[in-house]
Design a protein around this nucleic acid. Structure first.
Lengths: 347, 347
DNA sequence: CTGAAAGCGCTAACAC
DNA sequence: GTGTTAGCGCTTTCAG
């Protein structure tokens, strides 16, 4: 009598039969409830509930060609900036009733392409991604070739739909502020430029600011993104005529720079000012609290999903024109201060 | 002549036709290449490649009842411990050629159930999750009712397959070490116990250690998981007869406690020792470097996927018996030191 | 407002 | 080694 549901899942046919209606009606109850009479709807709902019926996603996807899944491609979760963003993505996706499929690239270009390929194979409806370099990303080309809707986050490029912050402006503003605090010898510490167009843009802003202030930016320090690199930074801090300020391309690097400085016996910010970029939450809980350019990371994730979903629903994929530039905030923590006066004078 | 592929995706039928073979053969080429003759295999592969053919995942899933997707349920990505774990999950899943679908619960029980329901609806083959309380999780019951294979991470419970670390032992060991350093007034700062069985277990270890040392643990400070709570901690530090050591249930809380201490004018570790738990990577880059019980977070993620996938492949769902306890490491950073001698004597 | 029937793209018996 | 065929569970015209 009740041996029907034992093997496999209950299907729409079972529900139809038990409710004494056609499968089509059951389908309607789930997809367009309002076009079904109250009586039948309640009846079907009841049967479905007590049979613990769950529509089969693959069958639905196969039929409708829409998976309600969106692919997410991120460099790493080891940097909290992306974790925070992903949290925003997850919230927004849940709100919009989409599932998310995650892929991580480790800043590796071949992995980016692989991630995109996997996601295409999984049949996602669209993708949210942060790539190394939007300008020459093969991964993006693949996506476009397949006609999959997509939105970039953090990346900033006029030819793509992007949710981003004006990193160059932000860095320019930050650098100016440092100059106003009396700093003259300012060095930038960057993640590998080749692996991040954001770092490149931030560097540009830094250089502009220095030029406008008639200062020569000292040689850029390029460090790996994922490993620690405290040694490279220490070397610079121990050289003669060391910088009075270190401007870092992201918070993680700044935190390590602070450690490097302290290990060198320098006080932050008394002896040296150090700034970050991103506004990760932990930055505010450290001591000294990190001075940084705060980006609305979770919001950026949410917005990217919102934009993508909107494009999906109205069958009008997000285009470059719908890009959104979000405002940044200069967070003055405690890691930056006036330039020290007792340091050996410049040159 | 070439107007076949313009609408929709190319299917296995197209490839079969173009290659002059049957659809079944094309299927075989993709699923069991070795049972097809070299000649036909190469032929089909060629046609497939140049037609940019990608097997349709939903159709395959519908037919085989296996999605090659695993669901992941995590409390939050705002705590790097879970982000690091997720990174491990992502790696392992990619290695094993599985996709991952992510859901976040914010430590909310109803969200846990919702997440599981969504994942079931998405048709994942199995799930990896960390729940608030393994002992009484309705979410886990749902999973079991549906017969979906699953593995818990961080949670530790004899009735479930778990990848975990002995949090109680670890905390006991840590507390003993603190006692050996001369600390007598040690207070534990915990995330809400109700929201985390890990915190509960760690607390148990703390209490055991204190009892073994014939010390009375001062009242537990319970703080929220996600918000900052620096004020609550400061209050305790400013009270008379303050603790000489703060034992925190996770690194995030420890970092905030360090800030609270410093804001109260206390030096860490000279005036007060503060320890964390989890071993998030950032802890090592801070100054003082965080003293903590390090867990192999990424590895825990990897292992959980490995265990799950193995269970999936051999159609033998992971059981409690296959649980794995991973070793923890006491990381002595710089945030803990000998108890100060100048503090007002106890009672 | 509801039912009948076709088929989305793929795999797995089963024949040859 | 390869081809034929029958669905997996669902949605969606098209009738009524």
């Amino acid at each position: 009598m009740k041996d029907k549901q034992q093997s496999g899942r209950t299907s729409i046919l079972d529900i139809a039969e038990r409710a004494g209606v056609s499968p089509a009606t059951v389908s309607r109850v789930f997809n367009s409830p309002h076009i079904v009479s109250d009586a039948t709807r309640n009846l079907v709902m009841g049967v479905a509930k007590q049979s613990q019926y769950r529509p089969n996603a693959s069958a639905r996807t196969l039929r409708t060609r829409r998976s309600r899944a969106i692919g997410v491609v991120l460099p790493t979760l080891t940097n909290p900036v992306f974790a925070e963003c992903l949290q925003g993505i997850a919230w927004a996706a849940a709100m919009a009733n989409y599932a998310i499929m995650l892929q991580t690239t480790g800043y590796q270009l071949d992995q980016e392409e692989g991630a995109v390929a996997n996601l295409q194979a999984s049949g996602v409806d669209g993708m949210v991604l942060v790539v190394s370099d939007a300008a020459k990303s093969k991964a993006i080309q693949q996506i476009q070739a397949a006609g999959t809707p997509y939105v970039l986050v953090y990346n900033r490029h006029s030819k793509h739909p992007c949710i981003s912050v004006a990193g160059d402006d932000a860095m320019l503003e930050l650098t100016h502020a440092l100059v106003r605090l009396g700093h003259r010898r300012i060095t930038m510490v960057c993640g590998r430029l080749a692996a991040s167009d954001r770092a490149q843009q931030r560097y540009d802003g830094f250089v502009s600011a220095m030029e406008q202030a008639n200062l020569t930016p000292s040689a850029l320090i390029e460090v790996p993104f994922i490993e620690t690199a405290i040694d490279e930074i220490s070397a610079v801090l121990q050289a003669g005529n060391r910088p009075t300020a270190l401007v870092c391309s992201n918070d993680l690097i700044a935190i390590r720079a602070i450690r490097a400085a302290k290990l060198c016996g320098l006080r932050v910010p008394d002896d040296i000012s150090i700034s970050g970029f991103d506004g990760i939450q932990l930055g505010a809980d450290m001591t000294p609290a990190l001075s940084t350019v705060a980006q609305p990371n979770a919001e950026m994730g949410q917005r990217s999903v919102a934009l993508l979903v909107q494009g999906l629903e109205q069958e009008n994929p997000p285009a470059a024109a719908s890009s959104i530039t979000l405002p940044y905030t200069l967070h003055w923590g405690e890691s930056c201060g006036p330039a020290p006066i007792d340091v050996c004078p410049s040159s």
